[in-house]
Design a protein around this nucleic acid. Structure first.
Length: 276
DNA sequence: AAAACCGCCTGTCGGC
DNA sequence: TGCCGACAGGCGGTTT
């Protein structure tokens, strides 16, 4: 599912092709994708407008528009943003919105499960998107230092797995990269956050940064739905160590991997390398 | 205050 | 072959 590396890959792939193009047509196939804006207003604001910039915060994509507007997209589970150079290319079955550009190219927002969302609002009202303004630290930013991470962990007795998934603490981690990070650091997903030693906190910090960077370098993880902005699959699924490896042995010690629900999510770990 | 749970959605898969 | 329930998990809202 799209987590930080996938969303960042979409951003980087779309950046060279969607900026500074005039939007000539907007078609909304699934109205409920729009949050807090009517279809009429949505179209009126976008028509003859254009994307000036494209940024990411956590798992959110922020398209800057002319006239102080910003379009905020969240892919949730199965959302895709796909650029096509020619509008004649047939649309996917589950296309929610189609943005057509003056040069005959188009950007399509597809979403099988229809959880994805789009907000369109003035920059001054960005704070109204609660999930966006409460986001925690960007794990690939300079502020995310080992010592800061260690201090954060001290304040909570929550299970480390659910602690890492909480976007208000660290922005952008989902089920795949939390499991991979915890494995790399040798930490059991049910350990209380405040029980980690300084050494473990440092290890986990390094693991998070490493796995996110490595996943971005590999254009993200395509297990089923995720695609880059060009509709291509990522390749980090070939480098996963524990996520989805229910029937396999630990890549480090060979012990059968385990999986169980932690915080409502299936968690994959090695019972020998990640002691409770 | 924090953690657990539910609803939102559709496609896929295993069991019968 | 086809039906059915379980499952996939991000996040907002509600309950515990």
């Amino acid at each position: 599912m799209p987590e930080l590396p996938e969303v960042e890959t979409v951003r980087r792939s779309l950046l060279p092709v969607v900026l500074d193009k005039t939007i000539t047509k907007v078609t909304v196939f699934y109205e409920r994708i729009l949050q807090g804006v009517s279809v009429g207003d949505f179209k009126a604001i976008l028509l003859n407008n254009g994307f000036l910039d494209l940024n990411r915060r956590g798992k959110y994509l922020l398209f800057t528009l002319e006239g102080d507007w910003v379009l905020v997209a969240h892919l949730r589970m199965t959302g895709r943003l796909i650029y096509v150079s020619n509008q004649e290319i047939s649309r996917a079955k589950h296309t929610s919105v189609d943005f057509s550009f003056a040069d005959n190219s188009a950007l399509r927002f597809e979403d099988v499960r229809k959880f994805a969302t789009i907000n369109l609002l003035p920059f001054s009202r960005l704070w109204e998107i609660s999930g966006l303004h409460t986001l925690g630290v960007e794990p690939l930013s300079p502020e995310f230092l080992p010592q800061f991470f260690g201090e954060m962990l001290k304040g909570s007795s929550a299970k480390i797995k659910s602690w890492l998934l909480d976007q208000k603490r660290i922005a952008g981690l989902g089920n795949i990269y939390t499991d991979e990070s915890l494995f790399l650091a040798g930490i059991h997903p049910e350990r209380p956050a405040n029980s980690l030693t300084i050494q473990e906190a440092n290890l986990l910090h390094g693991a998070i940064v490493q796995v996110l960077k490595d996943a971005i370098a590999n254009q993200g993880t395509t297990l089923r739905d995720y695609r880059t902005g060009y509709g291509r699959e990522g390749s980090f699924q070939n480098k996963l160590l524990v996520y989805g490896k229910k029937q396999e042995g630990c890549p480090r010690c060979g012990t059968d991997l385990e999986h169980k629900k932690v915080a409502g999510r299936t968690s994959h770990f090695c019972p020998r390398c990640q002691k409770e």
